[in-house]
């Protein structure tokens, strides 16, 4: 057990004191048990989306026509994903990738994630570190598609990340796309 040597000897009464460690160990065990019981083991997280609702125009600012940005339209079809980059009403590029059949609860589209990364490198409009804007992706899906499938596509969409300089000067990895639903 723990002891404290405070001298003594030379015929005097020994001054070594023994500390009983048993209550201390008991206390530690009780704290460990309490914290283990009250711990939250299931971790929830969130995936971002943006409804792109425009705010009211500022009457003090002069409206100047801007070149429309390139937007990725991601179509979830029966057996494939359609990836179409549009600038205004002009189609810049169009490609497709197979949509593999998914069984069970674990839905993942790793090939789509890779393809989206390649597409962004080729067409993405916000690739500079100092650029804090994200490229917009619009998701088109059938009304009967299950939400689990939508999240799997969103997961693939957010897998491509880039370094972004934040306001405080720090750099952080951020997803390159911001997603919203097609209104139709």
């Amino acid at each position: 057990m723990g002891g404290v040597d405070v001298g003594g000897g030379d015929g005097k009464k020994a001054m070594n004191a023994e500390i009983n460690m048993i209550p201390f160990i008991d206390l530690l065990l009780v704290i460990v048990a309490f914290l283990l019981i009250t711990a939250v083991w299931v971790s929830f997280s969130r995936i971002n989306a943006n409804a792109q609702v425009p705010g009211p125009p500022d009457p003090n600012k002069e409206i100047t026509p801007e070149t429309p940005q390139k937007v990725l339209h991601l179509y979830i079809r029966e057996s494939e994903f359609g990836l179409i980059w549009k600038q205004g009403s002009t189609t810049v590029s169009e490609s497709t990738i197979d949509r593999p059949e998914q069984k069970g609860d674990e839905i993942m589209y790793p090939d789509l994630a890779v393809k989206l990364g390649e597409e962004w490198k080729q067409h993405g409009g916000h690739q500079d570190v100092s650029d804090r804007k994200l490229d917009q992706a619009i998701l088109h899906s059938d009304n009967g598609l299950k939400f689990g499938e939508i999240v799997a596509v969103l997961d693939a969409l957010y897998s491509t990340k880039r370094e972004m300089a934040l306001k405080d000067g720090k750099r952080e990895k951020q997803p390159v796309f911001n997603m919203t639903f097609s209104v139709r």
Binding site: R46, I47, A49, V53, N143, V151, F181
Partner: peptide, 30 residues
């Protein structure tokens, strides 16, 4: 819920946006 159809998700999503909540997040299991 993961089995809810996209139509319901889009309707709730747009309703939240119209009510002043444009930054909608979906809760998922990590």
């Amino acid at each position: 819920d993961r089995d809810v159809p996209a139509l319901v998700v889009k309707s709730v999503f747009q309703t939240a946006a119209f009510a002043g909540y444009p930054n909608v997040s979906f809760m998922v299991q990590k």
